[in-house]
Simulated scan of single mutants.
Amino acid sequence: MLNATEQNRCFFEQMQQPNLIRNVQTDFVLYQQGDVLVPTSVNEAHPDNGWVVSPLTQIIGYAQDELPKLRSVALRALSRILIAVLSGPLRLAKLDRLQVLNNQCLSTNVYSDQWQHLNLAQLRQLAVEKFPHHTVMLRSLNATQNAAIIHQAQQDGWLPVVTRQVYLYRDHDRWWARHNARIDDRLLQQPDWRFQLLDPNDKAQMARAERLYNQLYIDKYSRHNVQFSADWFRVFSANGLLELYGLFYRNQLVGIAGLYGVDQTLTAPVIGYDTDQPIQRALYRRLIAFVIRYAMDRQLTLNLSAGSPDFKRRRGGEAAIEYSYIYVRHLSFYRRSVWRLLSGLSRYFYRPLLERFKL
């Protein structure tokens, strides 16, 4: 994989191409502090913008997606009214007038070791001077991996907003001690199954990769998830930003795992499989087993993001509360107040729910 400087420059250059991510409408600027390059998304409000650049989508869009799961008709109706009532004040606060530092537009942004020595206050000042009416955000921070960044943010007056509970794998012995982990790892040795890097110049493979990802993350989970195009798979793979592996069963491509990392940190923002395949083929278990084995063999810290919490705990995942940190001191009183309210609600109501129910 590329080093941090090469990766950030390459990412910034590739994201100048339009429509690589179908549901993300944003521009990119490149900040620099010494040798550290910081690609940053900058946007206003766009309807149904991807949640990686849109707090409105993350709050309102996903809430709307959850409504059909409520069995009670009355509760669904009440929830729909509450969402509508909240939507107006949040839009008035211009939550989506936003710049996100180090935004890779993935479910989990990763931070290089360079961030341990970066002066966050100076970077924030540069960002505010360039876009004085935009909220400044850092996504995907947790105390286990990003304690130094969080400390600087707290010292500089940033607000924490709890976003999710993610699962980390950084201890080979903890992983291997779990019975489920060892069972899944044996799946990687079965005949008729193999993993191999996909060819970015093979248009059919890239189109198939997009379809497999969409079957899981868009069709099954939510249309608000990041919608990577076949061109995104091609460009990011060809330029060394993504290691895209295919899972083949008897030479048929039935699953994909895309790995994105820097220094000693790895994440798997792309997981997809043919949801029409029989459940007995255990495609999701095979893909996750491959990703964890890849990280453990290379002594990397794997951030396996949120979702499927019980599944991940049973395979040795360590829970960590994830935050976005927000800088709003330069904004109007109303906009600051809304962000402070969201920060308080997330810390005192949402976080206890995540921890109590092990979500």
Rank of each mutant, 00 (worst) to 15 (best):
L216E: 10
S332K: 09
R178C: 12
R22T: 06
I218T: 01
I279H: 15
R211S: 12
G307P: 07
L30M: 11
I83S: 02
R182S: 06
L126T: 11
T26A: 15
T267L: 03
R182F: 06
G316D: 00
V36A: 08
R356S: 07
T144Q: 15
Y167I: 10
A209T: 05
V338L: 13
R164E: 08
Y221T: 07
Q116Y: 15
L168K: 06
L244Q: 06
Q215K: 07
D35K: 15
E318G: 12
M206D: 04
Y323T: 03
F228I: 05
S54V: 14
I256Q: 00
P200D: 12
N239Y: 04
R178D: 02
H133F: 11
I150D: 06
A147C: 13
A204H: 09
D171Y: 15
L300T: 14
A147K: 13
Y260P: 00
L259Y: 00
T267P: 10
L331G: 00
R315E: 00
R9A: 10
Q227I: 11
T135M: 09
H133Q: 13
A4K: 03
D274R: 11
A306K: 10
A4H: 01
Q280T: 15
A268L: 10
A230K: 09
L216I: 04
L197E: 10
A181H: 09
G88C: 14
R250N: 12
V52W: 07
V161W: 02
E355F: 00
L168M: 03
Y167L: 14
L345S: 07
R91A: 06
Y260T: 11
A295Q: 07
D231W: 04
L304R: 06
A177E: 12
Y323A: 11
I81N: 04
N225P: 09
F333W: 13
R211L: 15
E322W: 05
I321A: 08
N180W: 07
V291I: 14
H117N: 14
V29R: 04
Y327H: 15
Q154P: 03
R340N: 12
G61F: 00
L283R: 11
L354D: 14
Q154Y: 04
Y111W: 10
Q189E: 14
R194K: 10
